[in-house]
Design a protein around this nucleic acid. Sequence first.
DNA 1: CTGAAAGCGCTAACAG
DNA 2: CTGTTAGCGCTTTCAG
Lengths: 339, 339
Amino acid sequence: MSTLKITSQQVAERAGVSQSAVSRVYTPGASSSKKTVDKVRKAAAELGYRPNVLARAMVSGKSRIIGLIVAYLENQFYPEALERLSNALQQRGYHVLIFMAKQTTGNIDSVVEEILDYQVDGIIVASVAMSSELSERCRAAGVPMVLFNRSQDDPNMSAVTSDNYAGGRKVADFLLAAGHRKIGYIAGWEGASTQRDREAGFVAALKEEDVNLHSRAKGEFVMAKAVEATRKMFAEDPPEAVFVANDHMAIAVIDTLRFELNYKVPDDVSVVGFDDVPAAGWPAYNLTTVRQPANRMVTNTVDILLDQIENQQSEPRRITIDGPLIVRGSAHIPEGWNT
Amino acid sequence: MSTLKITSQQVAERAGVSQSAVSRVYTPGASSSKKTVDKVRKAAAELGYRPNVLARAMVSGKSRIIGLIVAYLENQFYPEALERLSNALQQRGYHVLIFMAKQTTGNIDSVVEEILDYQVDGIIVASVAMSSELSERCRAAGVPMVLFNRSQDDPNMSAVTSDNYAGGRKVADFLLAAGHRKIGYIAGWEGASTQRDREAGFVAALKEEDVNLHSRAKGEFVMAKAVEATRKMFAEDPPEAVFVANDHMAIAVIDTLRFELNYKVPDDVSVVGFDDVPAAGWPAYNLTTVRQPANRMVTNTVDILLDQIENQQSEPRRITIDGPLIVRGSAHIPEGWNT
DNA sequence: CTGAAAGCGCTAACAG
DNA sequence: CTGTTAGCGCTTTCAG
């Protein structure tokens, strides 16, 4: 076996070739004779040699590290996304350096600087607000960035989201078709494009049928606040149906309704969420929701980012992926409803 | 502002000092006159300079990167741990490079090699089986490793776990005190020390009261298998109480009991889990469980690892942290029970 | 305290 | 195809 770090130089000596010959054997585009390859591989195996990624990064300028900024790992949507993101990247020879950001912002600037210090090849920002200055900073540093599950007005930023506006509309159509007219909305954090788009689509579709939001409360994407929002909303003139900006909060809403306010869901009130996190499918919630196609969102995110990294092709792209309404049992199902 | 990467050389020129002077200003242990520091900082700020972590890593031999191997992000215990781990490390100047491992093993070897390629300063392995050869490989490479939430017989491996054996005992005592005698156990993956220790403690405490396991089924720490295990266990001569090896499965067990088999929990059957994940506290489950003190486990893991990295002090340590039984409503509460 | 010089381990021309 | 020669950006002796 080996001791500590083995260098290409040591392998070269053992194989009786030059150090650069060793390098070539391990460099994708380079060419070496079968004979050299064999000698080198043999020596390397005996020594337990593996190329030093950092040294390679220094000279090549490519670290094969992707910085990932995340915030809310408590919302089940993110661990799932993180796992897929990491796997997809791993498969394509990249690895993920993780950075936790409190959405308290403020420190987000320093987080980006820290990431840049590692000479990452690209950055994925999951559900964190990105200022234009920051994205500008990354562009200046030559590091492509793509937003995951969040989009920004800035047309210079690449972003991948599900079609939140269309999703909001689907929920409205569904609730309306079920005959609901007194409809409430529990909002997420206003700084998030997902919150704004979902609500906009929802309200727009309602309006087309001359229905206005019966009530609205703020949940900020936080369970505890969703609980308070529910209490407030049902304190007087309760709605017949509630659309909650994401599943994470919808779970808290359902629990509060059932165990604190003694409502039956869906008998007394219909509840619909957004995301289709694993818990939405658990029998206790059986939540009707709009699915965000995590796998396709991830695939697109990775494709865009690697394309920008590997082909210099720097035109930002913004992709929106349609997600289906998953009809389960937390809301009345309109008669004759299908799909 | 700036364009692309600024080097210490450029800062040096602008500040009118040598490149090494700039380096010293950014090197913790080094000394420079206030005058130099000021000039350098000023020039650096104007240029937007930040030291290249990779270059620093090359020469210093310290990358300040910690490799983290994880597998089951679906079990809520892990995202939480990951978040805390990353935050704790970030705070101490390290960053986390993430590697997903399928517990299908097999590829775990290659994952470790990949990690080593990045010249990480240390490795944290969360709930993944580690062979002695692998740990030996890391030791040979001079990279300390600590197991998180898993322990191995190998006394050379540092490991941090909660006291799973004691936890199992607590559950047994609780169930016994409630008067249960027909008690079932739904096991996790047998390869995990957590599974084995929890069961061993549980069975031992039962035996002390002359009670044997009434039934046992395998859930493998997977929800779908836990559902099947529940069906099988309750198909004939159902137990009065079930201890499930972790909360993730316990959730599936409760749902299956309630919505498929029409049992009332806890009226017809008591269910107790292990971990105290966020969902255990959700009203729908209100799960009685043994808490794994994630924060303390993380703190200890980080302390041990950094100690080994920074002080060469290589004696492996194995820490076990006691976790309390959190009594909620999914199991009968013995009369006069307190704490 | 400060500058000059020597690399860390590797890739990328460049002649042969 | 192969060896030689330059560095990548930074830390670290080593004289001064």
